[in-house]
Design a protein around this nucleic acid. Structure first.
Lengths: 253, 253
DNA sequence: CGTGATTTTGAAGCATTTCAACTCTGGTGG
DNA sequence: CCACCAGAGTTGAAATGCTTCAAAATCACG
């Protein structure tokens, strides 16, 4: 099993684009469902995007859906006064663009955090294909449903966990996302800055930093190399216990 | 325009169920879209539920979607250790049940907060009908998309607003939900306890109470009658300004 | 009219933010 | 090669906002 940041396929050094040879099926078959469906039934544009590049932005007319084939994408939401927040992260196999289905224009911005390959299909084509192939619609709805449940869960842990536990859980979730995709779950490069992590978790970057330092002190995680971005999870179980211990009773219903 | 709590159609006193004569179209036509689509193309079961009654619960096999025809529904999410949280509120025209599409079983519980009429359609029937009538699928996807965008917005204000501002915004959103549905937006009955509001907003019931008291002191809202549940919004503009003023820079990206 | 649930209010404790200083890293140019 | 700089990350101390705990007030219901 390749580590997330030693495998050039999924975590290339910035300068050189990776050769487009992809091993789609080295992971949980469920992750590849959308990709497989598209490949079988739909014409799609495949596109490499680089960190910082935008896949779609707010207000942009909606006509396509996208699937992440490799890499990592962040979804940003903006408020009227220019404030922004990371509202979601998308890994391989995840869809992008549902936000535009309502008003035919996107309500959030999708930005690459890593060199990523994005498959783009026309929404109209998806609908058309679903006439003949119910599996298309089924995969779409499944992805949507998982997305919603995921958001609700994130919302909940957001309300019931302390900052430290939230950071720990964030790392665990990232790890499990990698594991599901056949990547090494114990060792990966954080592609978000402390500020972005804070935005995603609803805490300040200083708090993120402090929490990470705490987790290191506790021996639950560690870092490779110089910049504190190459993470190593030293005890998944212990981390999970740490999260459990961080439960508050703050927001029961 | 009827006030929300004087109109027996949408806000009946508990003892007697209202006569099932509904004036579906006295509101923003967009709200009624799902209802209209269902009425035209799909067989549905219409059902009255009373406060506390469950429409679907966690783990229950998924096979139907529902639309709220009148009343108010809360969606509860549970964690492993029994903690629960109000993750969403559903008004007239809103759909329920998307959470079950992924794994064929529901991941959250839907409970009535008011006497409500629920229209239930089989998910399979929806898919079947969408073959002949694209509008069915279009309405469904639109609802889903709005739902997601709404959650992201809620998530954002959750991260960027102080407790007081969050409560104020909550009341404003409720008000605007009523307005969109042709109900009096300045005067309505809070159908959630302070505890439920706190759960929904991610703060304690005491904080909710304090925030409400503050809003009353500031002259932005007021109460009717005895129990502090019958709300009157005294200045929508001023409330909105209050929310703006409550912005923090805590979680910028 | 009492009993239990809901709501309000106060005061103390705690977690997180804020502000500020400092370190580390990587890149640029002398 | 080293000095310098900007950006990212860390850490400390004070301030703030929310929670917690506790008690009183109000309301709903039989």
């Amino acid at each position: 099993m390749p580590t997330a940041f030693s495998d050039p396929k999924f975590d290339s050094a910035r300068p050189a684009p990776p050769p487009p040879s992809f091993d789609v099926w080295r992971c949980d078959p469920l992750i590849g469902e959308g990709l497989s469906i598209i490949e079988k039934h739909l014409p799609c544009r495949r596109q490499i995007v680089y960190p910082g590049q935008t896949i779609h932005s707010v207000g942009q007319p909606f006509s396509n859906l996208h699937i992440v084939h490799s890499g990592l994408i962040k979804l940003l939401h903006f408020s009227q006064d220019g404030r922004q927040q990371v509202v979601a992260l998308r890994f391989k196999g995840d869809w992008l663009g549902f936000d535009g289905m309502a008003d035919q224009q996107h309500t959030c911005e999708a930005v690459a955090l890593d060199i990523s390959e994005i498959w783009t299909v026309s929404y109209a084509a998806v609908l058309a294909a679903s006439q003949d192939h119910p599996a298309v619609l089924s995969a779409l709805h499944k992805a949507i449903s998982e997305d919603m449940t995921g958001m609700q869960e994130r919302f909940m842990s957001h309300c019931t966990l302390h900052a430290d536990a939230r950071v720990a859980e964030f790392l665990l979730q990232w790890s499990s996302s990698l594991a599901k995709r056949g990547l090494h779950p114990d060792q990966f490069r954080l592609r978000l800055s402390r500020e972005e992590i804070g935005s995603y978790l609803g805490i300040t970057l200083e708090s993120v930093s402090r929490s990470i330092s705490l987790l290191v002190r506790e021996g639950l995680i560690g870092f490779h190399g110089k910049g504190r971005r190459d993470l190593k999870i030293l005890g998944t179980e212990a981390l999970a216990e740490f999260v459990e211990a961080g439960l508050t009773s703050a927001t029961e219903a």
